[in-house]
């Protein structure tokens, strides 16, 4: 029993290392694409020349990076990768760990970057910032902290990581459900819908006030959602086939 467990842990570690090596590039690109999306959202909501330019750059970033994203996913639906001698659970655990770790790291970096940039520009006198770049960073920092991540949960670090875990697990589930490109579009669509839904909820209901006042409810809700997606993703993992590839 101990030997079996030890082999299993070894395989999980090897797979985590392998996935890290394979995913490193494309996951960075994916998170960059998310920045692009955030920029798009920001630009749509505050049209001016500079932000139209940003919209173009962001759009280009998305499409350019999509290629690499597609490339990364090709590994995970490739016969030699799928036929690696690891169990479904080991595969799932290593994927989940990697996604969570990378997701958390990149998301923190992004938030830090935008918030940091905003703070730097806040120090600069407006007369030295005729293009209003400081305002832009202010806007993007808001987008990141309020639009994509729920601000009520964002205020507490535990809640923030739960939200992030939920998001990445959701992503993982989608990759299992829809191999290749479709997962990306479905995820992006859901992200966008989520952002809009939040605005609608804030405007028309007091649901966020409720969660703000009852943080444990929010935590439980996210835990339940995460558990659901974990279960869902686990079930799907065994069913990936190469139907489309052969």
């Amino acid at each position: 029993m101990e030997k079996t467990l030890s082999f299993s842990l070894q395989r999980t570690w090897w797979l985590l290392r392998l996935n890290g090596r394979l995913s490193k590039a494309w996951e960075v690109y994916w998170w960059l694409a998310m920045v692009g999306l955030a920029l798009c959202l920001a630009a749509f909501r505050k049209q001016d020349e500079m932000q139209t330019l940003c919209l173009m750059v962001a759009g280009l970033t998305i499409f350019y990076r999509l290629f690499f994203f597609y490339y990364g996913l090709k590994f995970q639906t490739n016969a030699s990768y799928l036929n690696l001698p690891v169990s479904k659970l080991e595969r799932f655990v290593s994927q989940l760990m990697l996604t969570l770790v990378l997701g958390a790291v990149y998301a923190c970096l992004l938030v830090l970057f935008f918030v940091g940039a905003r703070n730097v520009f806040a120090l600069i006198s407006p007369e030295y910032d005729p293009l209003g770049i400081g305002d832009m960073f202010q806007w993007w920092a808001t987008v990141f902290t309020e639009l994509i991540l729920p601000n009520d949960l964002y205020n507490s670090m535990g809640g923030y990581f739960l939200a992030l875990g939920c998001l990445t697990t959701f992503w993982l589930a989608l990759v299992c459900l829809f191999p290749r490109m479709l997962a990306f579009w479905v995820f992006m669509a859901c992200l966008y819908l989520w952002a809009d839904l939040r605005i609608w909820l804030i405007v028309h209901t007091n649901v966020f006030d409720f969660f703000k006042a009852n943080e444990w409810c929010a935590v439980c809700m996210h835990l339940a959602l995460t558990a659901f997606f974990l279960w869902f993703a686990y079930r799907r993992f065994g069913r990936i086939t190469l139907k489309k590839q052969i």
Binding site: F7, S8, R11, K74, F75, N78, A79, S80, Y81, N83, L84, P85, V86, S87, E90, Q245
Partner: peptide, 16 residues
Amino acid sequence: LPETLGDLFLLPEELV
């Protein structure tokens, strides 16, 4: 099973 997959190897036609 890992022990089964560890004892067979498939070389696909298209390599990634």
